[in-house]
Amino acid sequence: MATTTAGPTPGKPMSLGQHILDKGTEMLQSLKPVKQMQQHVCTFALYSHDMNRQIETHHYLTRANEDFLQCAVYDSDTAHARLIGIEYIVSDRIFETLPPEEQKLWHSHAYEIKAGLWVNPRVPEALHRPELRNLTKSYGKLWCSWQTDRGDVLPLGVPSLMMSPQPMGSGILNSELVKSRDKRYGFDSDDLKKLRVEIEEPEWINPKADYWRNTGEGFFAEVEERQMTRRAPYP
């Protein structure tokens, strides 16, 4: 499967004055939301409406509490990485409270983790093993807003819903994509898979998640023009 790489983002190079301004504001402002990012996870995602399109993703996680995480998703871990989307991750406890129609938009993480696809680069496996045990029971909703895999140099169109790799059918991940990632970070997903055998499978994975597996249907977002709801004038 060939992957298209987006070219340089349009725009003039950063000036010295802009660099100085950015450094100054960085020193003066707190940037608290960004500083709450505590983990870097590298994994893979598939477009819900076209699972032949598969991408490597880099998630920078902020933990709100034990049951909810929010992630800024980039296309790499370099200084010039593009922000391509967001993912929300909830525990099984929260997922079971969602309406059935909402649950269809989410994917499970059990296979992704057990198969060694979900990794914390440069972090010893033993250190984040307790976290992996919890995440196998979690569900994610990932929207990709910048389709760099098709060569877009800007975030064009509407966001696309993404799904997690699965062990069968069209959800199987391209092995070359995994090998390329593993080589870059110096590990083997197959070895991780063996190490993670002892991580317990969830007792229950809600079939409303990974909706495409049971129905063969994905989701594709479109823009619809509507009459604007106008604000009433101030008194």
Score class of each variant (00 low, 15 high):
2 A>S: 06
2 A>I: 06
3 T>F: 02
9 T>E: 05
10 P>V: 12
11 G>M: 08
13 P>R: 09
13 P>F: 13
18 Q>S: 08
18 Q>I: 07
21 L>Q: 12
23 K>L: 14
24 G>W: 09
27 M>V: 01
30 S>C: 01
33 P>V: 05
35 K>D: 09
45 A>E: 12
46 L>H: 08
46 L>G: 02
47 Y>M: 13
53 R>L: 14
54 Q>Y: 00
55 I>A: 15
55 I>R: 14
56 E>N: 10
63 R>L: 09
64 A>C: 02
67 D>I: 00
73 V>C: 10
73 V>K: 10
79 A>T: 07
80 H>C: 05
81 A>D: 07
81 A>E: 10
82 R>F: 00
83 L>F: 12
87 E>V: 11
89 I>C: 09
90 V>A: 04
92 D>G: 14
92 D>T: 08
93 R>F: 00
99 P>L: 07
99 P>S: 08
101 E>P: 00
105 L>R: 00
106 W>Y: 12
107 H>I: 05
107 H>N: 11
108 S>N: 14
108 S>R: 07
116 G>P: 13
116 G>Y: 10
121 P>Q: 08
122 R>L: 13
126 A>V: 14
127 L>N: 10
139 Y>L: 11
140 G>Q: 12
140 G>C: 14
141 K>W: 01
141 K>F: 01
142 L>R: 05
144 C>N: 15
144 C>S: 13
146 W>M: 12
148 T>I: 15
149 D>G: 13
150 R>F: 06
150 R>W: 03
150 R>P: 01
159 P>A: 06
160 S>L: 08
164 S>D: 14
165 P>R: 11
166 Q>H: 04
167 P>V: 12
169 G>A: 15
173 L>V: 08
178 V>F: 10
179 K>G: 04
179 K>Y: 03
179 K>I: 07
180 S>W: 02
189 S>L: 03
194 K>R: 01
196 R>D: 00
201 E>W: 02
205 I>V: 13
207 P>E: 02
213 R>G: 00
214 N>L: 06
215 T>A: 04
217 E>S: 03
220 F>M: 02
224 E>F: 02
226 R>G: 04
229 T>R: 14
229 T>C: 10
231 R>F: 06
232 A>G: 00
232 A>T: 13
233 P>V: 06
234 Y>T: 06
